[in-house]
């Protein structure tokens, strides 16, 4: 059971196994960036969302808190798109080695 429930989860209308994580991630993006964002699987986190390195770090830490996991640095380096991030979260939650 996650402890962190203060995030309002948005969306949820899209079909597919990733939709739930994607909408949670979208809410975290909005919380960190403090503005509405629209994300798709192929959204580039740095290029499309205009995040600098500090923004990425804050975002990663928010994701880690929400899902109660740690994303190792080499894993962060491999994440470019929202789909990459969803896959990393899924794998780390299920204990699949990095």
């Amino acid at each position: 059971m996650r402890q962190n429930t203060q995030l309002a989860v948005v969306g949820g209308t899209e079909a597919g196994p990733n939709a739930s994580i994607r909408s949670e991630i979208s809410a975290i993006f909005e919380q960190v960036l403090n503005r509405p964002v629209s994300i798709e699987d192929d959204t580039d986190i740095v290029e499309d969302l205009g995040m600098d390195s500090l923004g990425v770090m804050n975002f990663v830490m928010a994701i880690e808190d929400y899902y109660d996991l740690s994303i190792p640095l080499d894993r962060i380096a491999q994440i470019q798109t929202v789909a990459d991030l969803i896959r990393a979260v899924q794998e780390l939650r299920s204990g699949v080695p990095a």
Binding site: M57, M61, S70, P72, L73, D74, A98
Partner: peptide
Amino acid sequence: GSRLGQAEVIRFR
């Protein structure tokens, strides 16, 4: 140094 080795690197606040 953390990148030169093979350990899993986790950053804390």
